[in-house]
Simulated assay, not measured.
Amino acid sequence: MSQQLSKQRQLITLTNPRSPVSEAFRALRTNIDFSSVDERIQVIMVTSSGPEEGKSTVSGNLAASYALSDKKVLLIDADLRKPTAHKTFTLSNRYGLSSLLSQQVDIEDAIQDSNVPNLSIMTSGPIPPNPAEMMASNRMTAVIQELRQRYDVIIIDTPPLLAVTDAQIVASKSDGVIMVVSYGKVKRDIAIKAKANLDRVGARMLGVVLNNVKRKASEGYYYYYYGN
């Protein structure tokens, strides 16, 4: 266990569950759960406006936070261009989402256990030539519907909104979206443009994660803002 966790340094919810950042992820989880009274938020997409804003780190930590609350969780790496989940959890990426969507494997073969109780991972699989087509396919819709029957919570990590259309497509198949914004890196108009892309497909914005805010000059921190 300790050897595996040593390779999961970015998953602070596992390595340091008592830290302020881990508490922030628990607060994020709680806010998502209470964001809807009338309908269940089960499939949650995590994206960002641009690259290197920390969306994959947020996805992994949010998934782990749900798993630690005794929910049966699946993290899907739907970034079929720059996947990271297989590295984060030190898993094989021979088969994954792309293999499943191209009907090379069944769902069972595309899902792997992580070293975290209650948390399963569907890696990206081999990078395909047509990621957006795959995301828009009826097969992707059917896969999500099937997975809804198997898991309490499904977290989907997608590419940045302004880079490609993949995230917009997946947003339309999800119950809600979390957008990660890197503090001091992304200009306000860029973030607004990214949100407008989500609005166009009728996506439900659950909230924004403002990442890399400095609480002290020497200390990195995550700050979360929630809202519709």
Score class of each variant (00 low, 15 high):
213 V>G: 00
155 I>N: 02
177 V>K: 09
146 E>Q: 11
144 I>T: 06
126 P>Y: 06
123 T>N: 15
203 A>L: 09
200 R>C: 04
135 M>H: 13
183 Y>V: 03
163 A>E: 05
115 N>K: 14
120 S>A: 15
210 L>K: 13
116 V>R: 12
191 A>F: 04
139 R>Q: 15
209 V>D: 02
205 M>S: 10
136 A>S: 11
125 G>R: 11
200 R>L: 15
165 T>R: 04
146 E>D: 12
149 Q>G: 01
118 N>S: 13
165 T>D: 04
121 I>A: 07
215 R>V: 04
182 S>I: 00
185 K>D: 10
126 P>M: 07
140 M>S: 09
119 L>A: 10
127 I>W: 03
141 T>F: 05
149 Q>V: 03
206 L>W: 08
121 I>D: 05
141 T>G: 10
180 V>Q: 00
122 M>K: 10
203 A>I: 08
200 R>T: 15
144 I>V: 13
162 L>C: 04
204 R>P: 01
154 I>L: 06
173 K>S: 08
162 L>W: 01
181 V>Q: 00
149 Q>P: 00
191 A>G: 04
211 N>Y: 02
152 D>Q: 12
175 D>Q: 11
197 N>T: 06
130 N>P: 03
153 V>K: 15
176 G>V: 13
184 G>A: 08
168 Q>L: 02
142 A>N: 14
153 V>H: 10
153 V>A: 05
113 D>Q: 14
113 D>R: 15
114 S>H: 10
151 Y>D: 08
180 V>L: 00
118 N>D: 12
187 K>R: 14
131 P>A: 10
142 A>T: 15
188 R>A: 08
124 S>F: 11
149 Q>E: 14
